[in-house]
């Protein structure tokens, strides 16, 4: 990991405020999603990004409109990072008609094409190959678009990861692979199941890429890393593979209390919680406390409002069941 107090990079103050706002929004959103789950208003499962917000926020700010996000089942934060309204995401989690996908996708498949969120994928590894396809399309059309693909440390042990990174390197695709290494593949420590210390970075050399390990809990470091990788892709220099070290505050999913993790480890990482860390950074840079408090208040109110709007949505119409298997809007398989 790079130093926890980096040389403070030259980042515009408005950019820093946006990085903080996004992290706050994700933090409040994820806590609300958890509460709604406990109230049985969110059903099924959900995988929260509590503790990992800095990575998604940094890329959200660094990416341009038209760039593409490919996220995982732990994708609420990455979806919000591109400006997708919280109401639509919460309503999707609650299976309402006003949900982002009308209730047909759920927590693990958040997609908003108009915001460049090209999907959240719930089978480990697959979306790295799909991000390649979008990047290929950008390369072929010379559109200058970049695909950014987020995934966890556990993904580095599945075949699709290796196929995709090799393919991207050979085709020199404008894609950025971002491994959020939160130290656990679901319930098992990643170190217990991986032959190398750094599950992504130590594999980079196999595909001719630079090993990159960064502090995923420092939004400034992440932002600079994101800008560099996105620019590299956009310039035609090819893919990047970034390993961002982070830690999830909760378990793998709603069903997991995360008790397999040592208390000292959790405490140490809570000390490095990206949200208060960034708040301190902003204060030390001279941002008035009152300005931060106004922003915090505004985000909390926005989450409350989104919750009420989402709850007010009706259930999906039964007709939705049979719609949109095909491009003609229907599902007919025979004449």
């Amino acid at each position: 990991m790079t130093s926890t107090v980096p040389d403070l990079p030259d980042i515009a103050s408005e950019t820093r405020m946006e990085l903080y706002r996004l992290q706050l929004e994700m933090r409040h959103f994820e806590k609300r999603a958890y509460d709604l789950f406990m109230q049985s208003l969110v059903k099924g499962t959900s995988h929260l990004s509590l503790g990992q917000e800095a990575i998604a926020a940094a890329f959200g700010v660094a990416m341009m409109p038209g760039d593409w996000t490919f996220a995982t089942y732990r994708g609420h934060a990455h979806t919000l990072a591109r400006g997708v309204p919280m109401t639509a995401v919460l309503a999707e989690l609650m299976g309402r008609a006003n949900g982002l996908m009308g209730g047909k996708g759920g927590s693990m498949h958040l997609t908003s094409v108009e915001h460049g969120v090209m999907g959240s994928y719930a089978i480990i590894g697959a979306h790295l190959t799909i991000a390649n396809g979008a990047a290929w399309s950008a390369q072929y059309r010379r559109s200058g678009q970049v695909a950014v693909c987020f995934f966890g440390d556990g993904t580095t042990n599945i075949g699709a990861f290796h196929e995709a990174v090799n393919f991207a390197a050979v085709w020199k695709l404008p894609v950025v692979f971002v491994c959020e290494n939160n130290l656990y593949m679901e319930y098992t420590p990643i170190a217990a199941v991986t032959a190398v210390d750094r599950p992504a970075a130590d594999r980079a050399a196999a595909y001719g890429l630079e090993p990159v390990v960064v502090d995923g809990n420092d939004a400034d470091v992440m932002y600079q890393t994101a800008v560099r990788a996105v620019e590299r892709a956009r310039s035609g220099a090819g893919p990047s593979l970034i390993e961002a070290l982070t830690y999830r505050h909760g378990g793998h999913s709603r069903a997991d209390p995360g008790k397999y993790r040592p208390a000292e480890e959790i405490a140490a990482w809570l000390e490095r919680d990206p949200v208060p860390l960034y708040r301190s950074r902003l204060l030390s840079l001279g941002v008035p406390r009152a300005e931060l408090e106004r922003l915090e208040q505004a985000v909390a109110e926005a989450v409350d409002l989104a919750t009420e709007e989402a709850k007010a949505g009706p259930p999906p119409a039964p007709e939705l069941l049979m719609s949109d298997v095909w491009a003609d809007g229907g599902s007919s398989w025979r004449n």
């Binding site: 593409w68 090209m118 697959a126 979306h127 790295l128 190959t129 799909i130 991000a131 390649n132 396809g133 979008a134 990047a135 290929w136 399309s137 950008a138 072929y140 059309r141 678009q145 695909a147 699709a160 995709a164 393919f167």
Partner: peptide, 11 residues
């Protein structure tokens, strides 16, 4: 995967 990603982005 490449075919899928390309198809969803205009090819």
């Amino acid at each position: 995967g490449a075919a899928m990603g390309a198809a969803m982005t205009g090819l």
